[in-house]
């Protein structure tokens, strides 16, 4: 199983008495576009937060196989260390550094994996200047990749929803990740932006070689993008398979009709 990037085993996450994730086991293969779907409150975002070190599940194990096949246990590791190991993410209600420009947003992601010295930064030594230039180049490249070159100097808060989603992806990619976790990337975007976004996500995998894990409500987008899906309901995995298998799975249909049939139909 050397091609597994995330190996999640028997993970249980509780908040007080509320069980948010119940004995979740799943694996994510390197290079795959995997989606996790489920009704509201099924535990999708909790799963994301557990995978990125924001939440600490009480039971189970999460192994991330990062650069150079190095296995890293996510549980017990701080979020910033998980991120440095090669897990990038976006947020459900996109979280930009909203008072900064698009360029600065991406640059913050790009420069963080250079080693650094305080003295160098204070005095702008030659190494600092070189690293700075490298980060600038990487930022320009990524903004071009997500199609935001002409918005580089715009304040993040005044970007449209679709642009913000793309900027968040660029910021995530700037950290040089192995895997990119997308939390409802299509929320709040219009149909044409959705198409752009679908293409962008596919390009991230194909051109950048970054594995994708996706949470999404929009079934059309998920079904056209994901190669494999997990279905969560009440914190448990209730089904796994290709889009075709999931579409035909009676358990899944039951879960969706039982809670929010409209969302399953897509918007």
């Amino acid at each position: 199983m050397s091609d597994v990037i995330f190996d999640v085993r028997d993970v249980t996450l509780r908040f007080g008495g509320v069980v948010s994730l119940n004995d979740v086991t799943l694996h994510h293969l390197r290079g795959e576009i995997l989606a996790v779907i489920g009704p509201n409150g099924a535990g999708k975002t909790s799963l994301f937060n557990s995978l990125t070190g924001v939440y600490q599940p009480q039971e189970g194990s999460i192994t991330f196989v990062g650069r150079n096949e190095k296995s890293v246990s996510v549980i017990g590791r701080k979020a910033h260390r998980v991120a440095s190991a090669g897990v990038a993410r976006t947020f459900q209600a996109s979280r930009m550094f909203s008072a900064l420009t698009a360029f600065e947003n991406v640059k913050i992601g790009a420069e963080n994996h250079h080693g650094f010295g305080v003295v160098g930064a204070m005095l702008r030594g030659p190494r600092t200047r070189r690293d700075d230039r490298l980060s600038d180049e990487r930022t320009v490249e990524l903004l071009r990749f997500v199609g935001l070159t002409d918005r580089a100097n715009t304040i993040a808060a005044s970007l449209s929803y679709g642009e913000r989603r793309r900027l968040e992806i660029a910021r995530g990619l700037a950290t040089n990740p192995q895997v990119l976790l997308l939390d409802e990337p299509a929320a709040g975007t219009n149909p044409s932006e959705k198409v752009e976004l679908t293409n962008l996500i596919r390009r991230v995998r194909d051109e950048m070689g970054v594995t994708i894990l996706l949470i999404e409500h929009d079934m059309k987008l998920v079904m056209s993008l994901a190669e494999r899906l997990y279905v969560l309901n009440f914190g448990s995995v209730i089904a796994e398979g290709t889009p075709e298998e999931i579409r035909a799975n009676p358990v899944v249909i039951e879960a969706y009709l039982g809670s929010s049939a409209t969302q399953a139909g897509g918007s």
Binding site: A79, R81, R89, M96, F97, L100, I108, N112, R171, G172
Partner: peptide, 15 residues
């Protein structure tokens, strides 16, 4: 600046 604005997002880029 990143931490001041959104600590969670800052952590997500490895800060």
């Amino acid at each position: 600046t990143a931490i001041r604005e959104d600590e969670v997002a800052a952590e997500s880029v490895g800060i």
